[in-house]
């Protein structure tokens, strides 16, 4: 799965979970830039991403994720492993 394919799928999840239909997912997107991205919706989003891509993040990986780009890199890594 390529970076842009993942981005596309994430965009659908993000628009849905954060109830914000105009979100444009980019690598540097993070919680500060989305109004409805808080501690509750964050974990919902993570759960959705895990089930969409069939991956499971470790707590430490979640802590080190600073933006969507970090998440995409992790997804690619996990899909290849």
């Amino acid at each position: 799965m390529t970076h842009s394919e993942i981005t596309e799928k994430l965009q659908i999840i993000f628009r849905n979970v954060f109830s914000t239909p105009d979100i444009q997912v980019t690598d540097d997107l993070n919680a500060e830039k989305v109004d409805r991205w808080d501690s509750l919706t964050h974990l919902t989003m993570i759960a959705e991403v895990e089930s969409e891509f069939g991956v499971k993040f470790k707590l430490k990986e979640l802590i080190s994720m600073k933006n969507v780009g970090d998440m995409i890199r992790l997804i690619i890594e996990k899909k290849q492993a």
Binding site: D38, S39, H42, L43, L59, L62, I63, K66
Partner: peptide, 11 residues
């Protein structure tokens, strides 16, 4: 504060 709250707590 740069980490989202429940994760920052564990951190």
């Amino acid at each position: 504060k740069s980490i989202i709250k429940p994760l920052a707590l564990y951190d």
